[in-house]
Amino acid sequence: MDNSQEIRTGRHCVFNMHVHLVFVAKYRRDVFTKAMLETMNEVFKRICLDFEAKLVEFDGEHDHVHLLVNYPPKVAISSLVNSLKGASSRILRTKHPEIKNKLWGNALWSPSYFAASCGGAPIGIIKQYIQQQQTPH
């Protein structure tokens, strides 16, 4: 799952965009097992492909998961997140029915999530590069 520095191309753009996502189980309940994380990894890879994105890295603990996703500029992060959370919740309930005993109500995921852009040069370096451009007189 590497090649995180790979520059990708679209029809009219060249890009290398990454987002770090964190999803937390509702009420931070300890619900995930290793088998569930393996199922999620496969689901997340499949959903990313649907968005022409790549799951670069994935792991988690008993109550939350981390994803590093390389995605094209046309993808809205909120749409990607909604699909990732929705599909994983549905499939986990089907493949691991024991998860229902660990949830309160019907919700697997907290409605909120963490997203941070990452990769490439630090913001300060990019600002400095832009400031040093030769502005025409």
Rank of each mutant, 00 (worst) to 15 (best):
A76Q: 15
F114C: 11
E98Y: 09
K45Q: 07
R11I: 11
G124D: 02
S83L: 14
R46C: 08
A53Q: 01
G105W: 07
M1T: 02
V19W: 00
G10L: 05
L80A: 09
P73N: 13
L103T: 06
H64P: 08
V75C: 13
N101E: 14
A25H: 04
V14P: 04
D59K: 09
P136I: 00
S110L: 03
A116N: 08
F15V: 05
K74D: 15
E38S: 10
T9Q: 12
G10I: 05
L108M: 06
S83I: 06
A35M: 02
E6Y: 00
N82Q: 15
R93W: 09
M36T: 01
F51H: 14
L80T: 07
G86C: 11
K54E: 00
L49I: 07
R90S: 15
N82T: 12
W109I: 07
F23R: 04
L37E: 01
R46L: 04
V56T: 02
F58P: 00
F44H: 01
R11L: 13
A107S: 15
P111V: 04
G60H: 06
F58D: 01
R46N: 07
Q131N: 13
Y113T: 03
P72V: 10
K95E: 15
P122A: 07
L84K: 08
P72F: 07
V22M: 09
V24H: 14
H137V: 08
F32T: 01
D2A: 00
L49V: 10
Y71E: 07
L68W: 03
A87D: 14
S88N: 14
F114N: 14
L67R: 02
K102G: 07
V75D: 12
A53H: 00
M1G: 06
C48T: 02
I77Q: 14
T9H: 10
C48I: 02
V69N: 00
V24L: 13
R8N: 02
L68C: 03
G60K: 04
E57A: 05
V14C: 06
A107C: 11
V75H: 10
P122Y: 02
S110F: 04
Q128V: 04
H18T: 01
L103F: 09
V65F: 11
L55R: 01
K26V: 05
T33N: 05
R8Q: 05
Y113I: 02
G10S: 09
L108K: 04
S110A: 14
H96D: 12
C118N: 06
K102Y: 13
P136N: 10
E42I: 02
A121G: 12
R90W: 13
E57Q: 07
V31D: 00
K100N: 14
S112P: 09
V81G: 13
Y27H: 15
I126F: 05
G86V: 09
A76D: 15
E98W: 13
P73A: 07
W109S: 12
E61G: 10
S4L: 00
F44A: 03
P136G: 11
I91M: 14
P136H: 05
W104E: 10
L68T: 03
S117Y: 03
A116G: 10
V14E: 08
A107Y: 12
H64E: 04
L37R: 01
E98R: 13
G105N: 08
S110Q: 06
E38I: 04
D30F: 03
C118G: 04
S88T: 14
P97Q: 08
V56R: 00
N101F: 11
P97R: 08
A76E: 15
E6F: 00
